[in-house]
Write a protein that binds this DNA or RNA. Structure first.
Lengths: 336, 336
DNA sequence: GTGAAAGCGCTAACAG
DNA sequence: CTGTTAGCGCTTTCAC
């Protein structure tokens, strides 16, 4: 049997209410009794039971985090941002991998709700109608992180992916490139596919160019996908001179695919990646990349969630963080 | 107010005990009543409260995971292994970053214990006396993952780091290298420092060579540490011809440091890394690395923990998983 | 096969 | 400033 608040009360010669007050830092306790209670706690080695507390207070100081894959270099950085801010606000995190599987995602939300989390940070891919219904039926706040629903009904934290892609591709155009390819994720992915591709397209159209289907390849975000995409691009009679990838890992693949075939970056191909993960400086040539502040997105998401949980007023629940292009050696040009 | 088990009982015309039995899959319920209860649950949209359940049953089906840094490519892979097996056994995970800070680690264990986790997976660096005391005072089982205490008193899952280093360095020796350097973590780190260095040393001594202090450099596991270490090594009058790094990221740094100075790998330097993270194939030349099955270490750790939590008998509580060297392009030799 | 009732350990009014 | 008293929602004997 464990030591309970009742044991401490008896040991200190006070009521359990007083012990509870002391433990919770309630100021309405005479310093002498506070001291007596603290001593009793010390003597008995009392450790408050958070589960009982959660049941009585209806707050668990625990939040749920649904993440596609914690082993991804991208998401793990986000998770770190979330966790740091959670710790700062005294919350713990229940972490769940979803593999972006819809059924799993919805199931996980329900599990987290059963565990009475005080809020949820959701990272995922496509937000379907079913997701939206689940979100709406949640008794606790949910914040989307590096994820956004089509109608922007739910709180979310992102950068403007479309604009960021537009900026990167426009920089390529300004540097004189006529034949710009893109290695994108599937268009069903609202961010890494749809939005980033949309920015690529708009940049080309704004510059009076048209989208050449041969120059648009799809990948699954792995290094190998980049290597293979570059092979295909090189095989084209009319090769592109610049390639924009929707993730850094694929961009590294592009660089290595080019090098493996005897080409050089940036002399033969200018390459720009996306996310500015730590990988960008761990390759030669170092990778020019669109900076997405992953840690910050996680941190801001969590901060936003705390506001909802504490019923603070939030002025803007759809937040867009700034982005920019970090120029390194994989592009022969270094700015607009 | 939420729907409780009591509401369901009333709706179904049974007692709460019966509802509880149905929810928990207890077979002692007549199929017809079971059906009636299920319908009531459906109709009311009842969602069991895991906190109340935890308080009453003294099991939370939640385990704590203490990890140095979830954004590390190495630990995030481990975490994924842990989470997958946890999910398989219906546990959820509370994830906490410790930054390998002793006070934080001990504080986190206590927090997790307050939250009444059913067990803990601990990843960290040095296991001090204070750690050991905390572990011993825990009412729930604790498994060390990719971490080990000096006396092997506690359950743990690892590979034999010393032997693995020995194997890698011996392969270099067998390939004819006379001057082999090592980029190690601080020796206070029992694994990435102490054990790996010990293997390096033993390999040299066994081959009748002595350890040249100039050839032993320390790094903080970052890519930059590798780049800098290589600079120093190159500056030596009597340059080494092979370098063994205790982590892949540092090994990439070594490669790039050499390339940045106009040298070539493996022509000028044979390089071997450690961990065989995904980075190993994301560099040119691709990196020869000691394979440490990170995902498996996580998975096995969690599986071991479930055994303790379920009071299964475990035959060997200090498990060592197999290791090997994966040869790639950063070494001019391809095996023993 | 089912129900009644006693907690699990704590918080939160409400008194005083 | 401190104590009393209900619960929080569920599991778990123990009867029947």
């Amino acid at each position: 049997m464990n030591i309970t608040i009742y044991d401490v009360a008896r040991e200190a010669g006070v009521s359990m209410a007083t012990v509870s007050r002391v433990v919770n830092g309630n100021p309405n306790v005479k310093p002498t009794t506070r001291k007596r209670v603290h001593e009793a706690i010390e003597r008995l080695g009392y450790r408050p039971n958070a589960v009982a507390r959660g049941l009585a207070s209806k707050r668990t100081t625990t939040v749920g985090v649904i993440i596609p894959d914690i082993s991804s270099i991208f998401f793990s950085e986000l998770a770190r941002g979330i966790e740091d801010i959670a710790t700062m606000y005294k919350y713990n995190i229940i972490l769940c991998n979803s593999d972006q599987n819809k059924e799993k995602e919805i199931h996980l939300i329900n599990t987290l709700l059963e565990k009475q989390v005080d809020g949820i940070v959701f990272m995922g891919g496509e937000i379907t109608k079913e997701h939206e219904e689940t979100f709406k039926s949640s008794p606790v706040p949910i914040v989307l992180s590096a994820t956004i629903d089509a109608n922007k009904e739910f709180p979310s934290v992102n950068i403007d992916y479309e604009q960021a892609s537009y900026d990167a591709v426009t920089a390529m155009i300004n540097a004189g490139h006529e034949k710009i390819a893109m290695l994108s994720g599937t268009l069903a992915d609202p961010i890494n596919g749809y939005q980033k591709f949309a920015g690529y397209k708009r940049a080309l159209l704004d510059a009076g160019k048209e989208v050449n289907d041969d120059y648009v390849t799809l990948g699954d975000y792995t290094h190998d996908a980049g290597v293979n995409a570059m092979k295909e691009l090189i095989a084209l009679e009319d090769r592109p001179t610049a390639v924009f990838a929707s993730t850094d890992e694929m961009a590294l693949g592009l660089i290595h695919g080019a090098q493996d075939a005897g080409y050089r970056v940036p002399e033969d191909f200018d390459i720009i990646g996306f996310d500015n993960t730590r990988l960008a400086t761990m390759v030669r040539p170092t990778l020019t990349s669109v900076v997405q502040p992953m840690y910050d997105i996680g941190a801001v998401s969590m901060r936003l969630l705390t506001k909802f949980m504490d019923n603070e007023t939030v002025d803007e629940q759809v937040v867009l963080l700034p982005h920019r292009v970090e120029y390194r050696q994989s592009t022969s040009f270094q700015g607009e």
